[in-house]
């Protein structure tokens, strides 16, 4: 199917009638995902949003339930966001990240109803990346600029129009509902050509990385790797696959709510015991955990690398702690010593 670029606002408006439509909108120097009231609000086709798509399913702060304990009894109420939604214009890396997070929030023993309800009720409409940024390394982590994993529909930019690829039934239903017309063979060829032309220049060699991580927990290299890390949470909060959180009460006396907030393994308090003992005492242990989590533990548990190569951590790190360099150093390839 196909939709011309100038019809995108119309298309979105049509969807807005049925769904809550979330799309990138402009904020200062960057874009963020926001529900749009009108199709013209969306800025489709720019680079990645500042914050990844995970925040739409796993918001930074989320009320788990409200409670009141009174003489009459105990009342608990859990809000469940089951609105029908379309996430429009998501990049393949972000879509893939949700696929990865599904493993966490729907694990072998427990299901997270808040996340999963949103996942079930959201149609994912992605846009492939014709010109990946210099910090994108998706192809090095089993993804790519037109990766369809996690997507229901994929738009391929062919210049004046997007060729729409149907990935799932859910996607097809949305496309049908929106009344998209079929793409011509020429359009399909153009789409294939666009895909062909998109080159991810940045490559991180991950060969043997896992094998190395399997054995190098106590390797002295960790002493140097973390050295310039400030221990802030910028990389984790902007990471599409980081999912750590904290649970707190926001209450007056016995009436209030339980809230979960993003947390970060970079923070010292994250693992601090009540007794004062901390299994991850310093930045070294904490930074190591972040790398291990994504490139070893996640692989061990879910057989997937817990990174989608979006490059946000590279662009936003206050001290230019570049995960590509870190991984290269670990692999012991022609690594530069400066990280």
């Amino acid at each position: 199917m196909i939709v011309s670029k100038k019809d995108i606002p119309n298309l979105l408006d049509k969807m807005i009638a049925e769904y809550e439509v979330i799309a990138p909108v402009k904020k200062d120097n960057f874009t963020v995902f926001k529900p749009v009231a009108s199709g013209t609000d969306a800025v489709v086709g720019e680079g990645n949003t500042k914050l990844p798509a995970k925040e739409l399913f796993f918001p930074q702060s989320e009320k788990l339930f409200s409670y009141s304990v009174t003489e009459e009894g105990t009342k608990l109420e859990a809000p469940m966001d089951d609105k029908k939604k379309v996430l429009f214009g998501v990049r393949p890396c972000d879509a893939r990240s949700l696929k990865l997070l599904d493993n966490v929030f729907d694990n072998d023993k427990f299901q997270d109803p808040y996340y999963l309800t949103r996942r079930e009720n959201t149609v994912m409409v992605g846009i492939g990346c014709n010109s990946p940024a210099s910090t994108c390394f998706c192809t090095s982590v089993n993804s790519g600029p037109f990766d369809t994993s996690g997507l229901d529909l994929l738009l391929v930019d062919t210049g004046d129009a997007y060729v729409v690829e149907l990935i799932t039934e859910k996607g097809k239903a949305l496309a049908d509902q929106a009344g998209l017309t079929a793409a011509s063979d020429a359009d399909k060829t153009a789409a294939a050509a666009a895909k062909e032309a998109a080159v991810v220049t940045c490559q991180v060699n991950t060969d043997g990385l896992k094998a190395k991580l399997d054995v190098n927990f106590y390797d002295p290299i960790w002493e140097r790797i973390h050295e310039k890390c400030l221990g802030c949470g910028a990389c984790t909060y902007l990471c599409p696959t980081c999912h750590c959180f904290d649970i707190v009460d926001d209450a007056v006396d016995c009436t209030g709510c339980r809230v979960r907030n993003w947390d970060s393994c970079a923070f010292p308090l994250f693992t601090l015991h009540g007794s004062g003992h901390n299994p991850r005492t310093s930045n070294k242990e904490r930074y190591r955990n972040r790398i291990m989590h994504k490139f070893k533990y996640f692989v061990d548990n879910f057989n997937e690398i817990g990174c989608v190569g979006c490059g946000r951590c590279i662009k936003n790190c206050p001290v230019n702690m570049d995960i590509r360099v870190v991984l290269e150093n670990i692999r012991g390839s022609e690594a530069r010593l400066d990280s």
Binding site: V104, F105, N107, D108, K109, F110, D112, F217, H243, C244, F245, D246, I247, R260, D263, C265, F270, T271, L272, H273, G274, P279, N289, M292, H293, K296, Y297, D300, N301
Partner: peptide, 24 residues
């Protein structure tokens, strides 16, 4: 083991020892 825990269901990420979650 007695690592610090929050969610207790293997999601919040703080009680892991290697790939294992102490809570789950």
């Amino acid at each position: 083991l007695e690592n610090r825990m929050k969610c207790g269901i293997g999601m919040c990420g703080r009680c892991n020892v290697g790939g294992k979650y102490v809570c789950k």
